[in-house]
Design a binder for these strands. Structure first.
Length: 514
RNA sequence: GGUCCGUUCGUCUAACGGUUAGGACUCAAGAUUUUCAUUCUUGCAAUAGGGGUUCGAUUCCCCUACGGACUACCA
């Protein structure tokens, strides 16, 4: 069977997308693009209780920031709500597909693969409690279904009457008895499960006329012609049910291939990565800053200064590697290099240090114009404006010292503002009694240098210092204190050449008298 | 409790059944440097445990331990 690759990322809008979700979206995207296929964004909002305003917009914006643009599916505005050339399977929001699912649920009942259940939630709750006190767990399955309140245990007429009268019945899947379901996972290989360990899952509920995940997922994946499903590991236990659903509908020949991704784990200790870990350890777990409806603010990679390319690169390597020693990959390179078979089976502990390292690598290799324009923004917030060429030269001089653009100010403030204070401990180390006298001579020497560029300053200046028998360390560092005010920055010659002769001499003079 | 998935340096990971078990991050030491950095070199550090199969096991099988997910009218 040869069909077009179509994958979907199907988040639930119950909050901001967490970095594990972004990784799932990324792997889907890479997989599809490598095969010239489509990446579809579908919103699984079948749980009306847990809907969070703003979450869907957040998901769309976060993916866009990462450079993951859906070919089809939910987007801003109403574009994806109606069928069009670009959106042949619209709508892509499950709450807007309500009418579709009921028919499929009924089809399953009619074929004998499902049944109506009228048990109240109170009744099920107490059953659960009883089982718990006995050390076990209640499962609605082949052993108990005949003694519960469902259509299997009543006449057709009685059932139809109750269907009309009551408002809380559900459709449950009738899990077959003692069958071994054989499944294939693209990452994990062959998996077998006996149906006796499974339960009769709810597929559809009349209360809100909405399906649960399992039905909606299988129906939509089929209708949307999804060829491959790459999703989180939390879905692995329900894979047999999904297989059985494809079988019951008679869709086995177009059943997608499945791959289940392991979880992202917290950096220390045990368990999966959560929002709290970020707060506790000081790193973002969300791509973008998130303001909850209650007003809580969570950090985002974007706002913390990460480049989207670095973020994506880091994420790609959390659970996958190309098998070579190359670690820096653009999105395009990832598309070419990615392979689902090389995805790691075990969970990966997130390492914030390595995330910073990735950003640092991008800080060094990124086009200088991009770095400079981001820095120019920070400068203008401080009320500083300089020509772009100058900002660019400053950036290329200090970028290798920084991990984030926002660090550039502390690293290079003296290129824009003359020092007003001088670091006394550094001064105590290099400044000697004869230093003012020496600096006066140096200043006079500098004033004669023309042109005032790095090459014309560097060598002649050190020659001059040597000829006079002065201590190189003392003189150069004292000069630096005058220019910078602190013990930081590139070479003295670089600094002087960039700020210019006039400014350099002014700073030396002020430094001597300070 | 049950079902399923997993387990190589502290972390991310590499290794047709045959390697001195490799790389990256972190850390440490040294070199370079007029400062802070950078850079370079070196170092520390792992196959969870026990049984098999095999001439040979990180690799295949079983058991145990540990970790994780699931066990909702949530996804």
């Amino acid at each position: 069977m040869n069909r077009k690759t179509r994958v979907r990322f199907a988040p639930s809008p119950t909050g901001p997308l967490h970095m594990g979700g972004v990784r799932t979206a990324l792997y889907n995207y890479l997989y599809a693009k490598q095969r010239g296929g489509d990446f579809i964004l579908r919103i699984e909002d079948t749980d009306s209780q847990r809907f969070v305003p703003g979450a869907e917009e957040y998901i769309i914006e976060a993916l866009a920031w990462c450079g993951i643009l859906p070919d089809e599916g939910v987007e801003r505005g109403k574009m994806a709500e109606q069928i069009s050339e670009r959106h042949p399977h619209a709508p892509y929001r499950q709450s807007q597909r309500r009418a579709i699912y009921r028919k499929y649920a009924e089809e399953l009942v009619n074929k004998g693969f499902a049944y109506y259940a009228f048990d109240t939630s109170e009744r099920l709750e107490s059953l659960r409690k009883d089982a718990e006190s006995g050390g076990g767990a209640f499962t609605y399955n082949y052993q108990v279904r005949s003694s519960l309140d469902n259509s299997l245990n009543m006449t057709k007429d009685e059932c139809e009457a109750r269907l009309l009268q009551e408002k809380h019945w559900v459709v449950r899947f009738k899990m077959p008895e003692n069958r071994v379901v054989k499944m294939t996972d693209m990452i994990r290989g062959e998996i077998e499960v006996n149906t006796n360990t499974l339960d009769d899952k709810v597929l559809w509920k009349v209360a809100d006329e909405l399906p649960t995940y399992h039905l909606a997922n299988v129906v939509d994946d089929h209708l949307m012609e999804i060829s491959d499903v790459i999703r989180g590991e939390e879905w692995l236990p329900s894979l047999p049910l999904h297989y059985l659903l494809y079988e019951a509908f008679g869709w086995e020949d177009t059943r997608p291939n499945f791959a289940h991704l392991s979880l992202l784990l917290k950096p220390d200790g045990k368990g999966k990565l959560s929002k709290r870990d970020g707060d506790r350890l000081g790193f973002p777990v969300f791509p973008l800053e998130w303001r909850s409806p209650e007003g809580d603010i969570s950090h985002g990679y974007r706002e913390d200064g990460y480049f989207p390319e670095a973020f994506i690169n880091m994420l790609a390597f959390l659970g996958w590697n190309p098998g070579t020693e190359q670690e820096i990959f653009s999105l395009e390179e990832l598309v070419n290099a990615f392979s689902i078979e090389r995805v790691i089976k075990s969970g990966a502990k997130f390492n914030p240090e390595k995330a910073k390292w990735f950003n640092q690598e991008y800080m060094r290799s990124r086009e200088i114009d991009k770095i400079a324009s981001e820095f120019a923004l920070i400068l203008s917030e401080k009320g500083i404006s300089r020509d772009f060429e100058y900002i660019k030269r400053v950036c290329s001089l200090v970028r290798e010292r920084a991990v984030f653009v926002k660090e550039l100010w502390d690293l290079a403030d003296y290129f824009f503002v003359a020092p007003t204070e001088y670091d006394q401990t550094v001064k105590a180390k290099f400044w000697q009694a004869e230093t003012p006298e020496i600096l006066n001579s140096v200043k006079e020497f500098l004033s004669r240098i023309e042109p005032f560029d790095k090459e014309s300053i560097e060598h002649p200046l050190s020659q001059y210092i040597k000829e006079n028998g002065w201590q190189m360390g003392s003189v150069m560092n004292s000069l630096r204190i005058c220019l910078v005010g602190a013990s930081k920055g590139p070479s003295v010659a670089d600094i002087m050449a960039l700020i210019g002769k006039e400014e350099s001499l002014k700073r030396v003079e002020r430094g001597i008298s300070a």
